[in-house]
Design a protein around this nucleic acid. Sequence first.
DNA 1: AAGAGCGTCGTAAACGTTTACGACAACACA
DNA 2: TGTGTTGTCGTAAACGTTTACGACGCTCTT
Lengths: 342, 342
Amino acid sequence: MSIRDLARHLNISIGTVSRALNGRSDVNPETRRRVFEAAAAIGYVPNQSGRSLRQGTTNSIGFVVETNSETSLYGDTFFTSVYAGVQQVFARHHLDLIVLLCPFDQDPLEHLRRVVSRRFVDGLFISAIQRRDPRIDHLIESEIPFMALGRSLSGGTHPWIDLDFAGVAHASIHRLVERGHRRIGLVTAGSELNLGYVFADGYREALAAEGLSFDPDLVIRAETSEMGGYDAVDRLLKLPERPTAVLLVNEIMAIGVYRRLHEAGLTPGRDMAVIGFRDSPQSRFLSPPLTCFRIELSGLGRRLAEGLLATMPAYRDQHPIGLVQEIWPMHLVAGESDPPLR
Amino acid sequence: MSIRDLARHLNISIGTVSRALNGRSDVNPETRRRVFEAAAAIGYVPNQSGRSLRQGTTNSIGFVVETNSETSLYGDTFFTSVYAGVQQVFARHHLDLIVLLCPFDQDPLEHLRRVVSRRFVDGLFISAIQRRDPRIDHLIESEIPFMALGRSLSGGTHPWIDLDFAGVAHASIHRLVERGHRRIGLVTAGSELNLGYVFADGYREALAAEGLSFDPDLVIRAETSEMGGYDAVDRLLKLPERPTAVLLVNEIMAIGVYRRLHEAGLTPGRDMAVIGFRDSPQSRFLSPPLTCFRIELSGLGRRLAEGLLATMPAYRDQHPIGLVQEIWPMHLVAGESDPPLR
DNA sequence: AAGAGCGTCGTAAACGTTTACGACAACACA
DNA sequence: TGTGTTGTCGTAAACGTTTACGACGCTCTT
């Protein structure tokens, strides 16, 4: 079932059929109508390989995700919502979004190399950005359009959108101080994820802004999992002078944090205030509900898509925005895990 | 950077280069060595579109996932581990696994039609199998190799692997009865997911096997989310005669279940026994830890991959297993959420 | 009436790869 | 020496599509 069959069936040339289907102007409207009608009737759909080969483009964009729990900060609902936003924008351009999984036993750079060299996709999203991320250098060098969810230390001239972890740290510290806390712990990502550093830097700055001193003992770098949160609190509880509040880099950790507090006979919120990132059904269903930060995820997805398309020649004119390098805001959702200090 | 450039660089024909790279036997070992060496030196990688066009195959397999929360029973770690298993097998065959997202505002059948007709992949995995699933009929009709994670009512001659929800129901009921429970509730999937029905049927059979009567009031069909679990318990608590134990179709619900019990001044486990599916870090970190069922997920992934390859002519001889239609076992992990009834 | 302009269409090359087929040399065997 | 076999390689067609180019007929202008 090729374009040749369709052309024969209509008694016209394959060139005309192709032009009709691709919406070119030099084809009679009546002819175009007949072509579409016949295509639908006999169920013709263009072969993607042939099309790709000819025009050097695949009409699909890849979202690279790490399956390694060390580098994946977010739960499932996070990416699902982001994907939805991306797809909303892509649908208008007949672009497909596909998810490319980096096997956990493979080096992410190696995996990316493979994806890029195969020319499997026209563009890429990458996430789980490391502090110094060789993937970014490789992508820039290979000249493939891409968008980073998160920024690295090197910066560069590629598009990125980063979540406002510094803002979260500031808002959290300010709120906790207002509620009487003076000794506030931080549990941040222990991996080389850049956001772990951004979060820690924001924490330190926020302490300074509130006139509080910085105690390195209160900063725990942990795995971003239930167990990571558990271990982190374990260490905080062993300090000679415990913090009265703690800030978490993600909400998965909160589960372990609550658990460890319970085991120590303490009540989350009452005996130790907890603020976490991010708002999710899980956060809301914890007891007490976690005070955390909400992200407009599908909006983020849409913006990511726009930012990527803006760098692609074929779509640039439809997205006349400059280089997207933005901080995505998050909004505090008050729970009951950080009541005023008695 | 095409095969032509590589051939010119080596002063041999492109046919020989292609045969050398593809491991055919009719090429001098010394020539083959030179070809591989030169390819690595100048960084040549075969163009996938050209290859696909010629041999009508894409060397990649798609895993279709629903982003709709109504039909997605499992959390993130579930699929991540399954993917890992699939990739282990695929790596040996130079096959790529890509995830194809069905946009939540699109009909899954429509989405699948598009994927299939574009010939984007050589084979497919589908999950979230409905009781009667038109996708399966379409896949059979279109003659594309596929493997279903879950089985539908229609059966048919396609390969599938289904989790042993009936076995879970039996084992759970048996255990609860042993521990003194006589009135046991069930919270199953409210959508048209077939496993929701399989689970309910297993529950009913297990009750009969234990000589207990079936009370339709004790069966709640709910959304497979935190809120779904919450609402389900809410209804169970309103019954004139409360159950002393409850069975959950997934562990996300358990979060809502625990929460609702707490709000009613009840303690999960002590005042109402809870057994859930499935074992995950979350289940373990609940208080009390959830008694649930563990699945060997990467093994499941490997078996899914083998079962798919067994139906594909190009790989069949390397996987001489028949049609895979199997029930995948799950093993009870004792938590503390179902102590003996006082 | 001749030429320009326009709308519509067919022709054929090109994208990069694989593979059927045949060519050729070297060698073994009768 | 002639025939067959084997190992190695080149040639060219084919996959399905897009698109540059030119052809053709029609209308409009001067």
